[in-house]
Design a protein around this nucleic acid. Sequence first.
DNA 1: CAAGCCGGTAACTAAACAGTTACTTGATGA
DNA 2: TCATCAAGTAACTGTTTAGTTACCGGCTTG
Lengths: 225, 225
Amino acid sequence: MDSTGESGGKKKIKRAPNERVLQRDPERTRSAILEAATREFAENGMGGARVDAIAERAGTNKRMLYHYFGDKEQLYLHVLEEAYVSIRTAERALHIGDRSPEEGIGELALFTWRYFLEHPEFLSLLGTENLHRARWLRQSVRLKELHSHLIGELSDVLDRGKKEGVFAENADPLHVYLTIASLGYFYLSNQYTLSTIFGRDLIDPAQLDSWEKHIVHVTLASIKR
Amino acid sequence: MDSTGESGGKKKIKRAPNERVLQRDPERTRSAILEAATREFAENGMGGARVDAIAERAGTNKRMLYHYFGDKEQLYLHVLEEAYVSIRTAERALHIGDRSPEEGIGELALFTWRYFLEHPEFLSLLGTENLHRARWLRQSVRLKELHSHLIGELSDVLDRGKKEGVFAENADPLHVYLTIASLGYFYLSNQYTLSTIFGRDLIDPAQLDSWEKHIVHVTLASIKR
DNA sequence: CAAGCCGGTAACTAAACAGTTACTTGATGA
DNA sequence: TCATCAAGTAACTGTTTAGTTACCGGCTTG
């Protein structure tokens, strides 16, 4: 589309290509807001998060935030959807069916634990959303089918294990996933009260390592025949 | 102490003892505020809770709230302490050491699950407190030693089980408690997002019953020799 | 029975807040 | 080269909020 004849020299775009690269960049502004909002909502919950704080963290101002996302609630919903899409996308890449049933389940447990450990903001957002009884998640059209894949794949692995005689016949895929998620979620999201109360620093690497082994052990022990 | 000589007849206290019982009752007002605050904080978190709403729910007004508790944060701390004292008190009444080791652990798991089920406000308060990294709990002097009893008793039961050869030698009392609490906490506190996502109503009595059995099974499976 | 104190009410205040408006700056296409 | 539109800024607005002040009234006590 350089047929305007003026595409040659004058345009100020990229004047000094690396000196002041793009003063106006909608894509960057948008994602900066989304990232800042993720942190703000994760740290303070829906009620405690401040729109001004998000704008400041993103290096922009409220006007832009309302421009791209409508209002505080819609911005929160975007953040939540993004968080779910991220974990489920990473999860799919695992292909737990490629290994033996026991290895597959162990792999899923390890992945989930480590993902939780590396993404505390995801745990926090889940907590906030549940405080509000999934008020915003229920509105989301994007997320309903995102999860059938997980249960489907898990179900296949369990069935294979049952046929091979290593898993109990009554092992339920939802129960298995809930077991894995429970053990990771509670330990990490409640680490602050737990460490205070029991006087043991749960975030200490040795403790983390010990709990990681525990999760895998418990998960497999709960379904082995 | 009735030596003042005027303790006899005249006092208007209890005029018509049941008609307008006590227009002014500090004890009742105080506990009404505490109960209202428990619900408000549990439903909306620290950031979302409204002081006006608490006063209204308690059938009083803000003045009294500030009179009895100082400010919003101190009131919140009282609520949190109260919640912890309640569960630990009920827990002590269990005497898990009076039974066989396996029954004792099963009893603790059942108790914890049912307590969580009947006290959703406790789970919610825990979530809120952890969002704030135990900021207020850390300030509390009352709660530090409240928990050594639990771990101590649990430790005794495990040791007995190990001597009798039913429990594995490396079973850790903290891990056992965390396992029990994890499975109950996550299922209940995250029931809203989980039900939405997996399309199964987790609060349905049949589901609850099934998960209760699962918790006991998993807990014992994780420590059995 | 008068003095004073404590439980209680309601209206007020200053700050914080979500959301808006008026305006500026920069890119693009005809 | 100029009209147009999108990106961006900053100051503003009405409302909500935690916390306060001024006041009322009944009970206790010297």
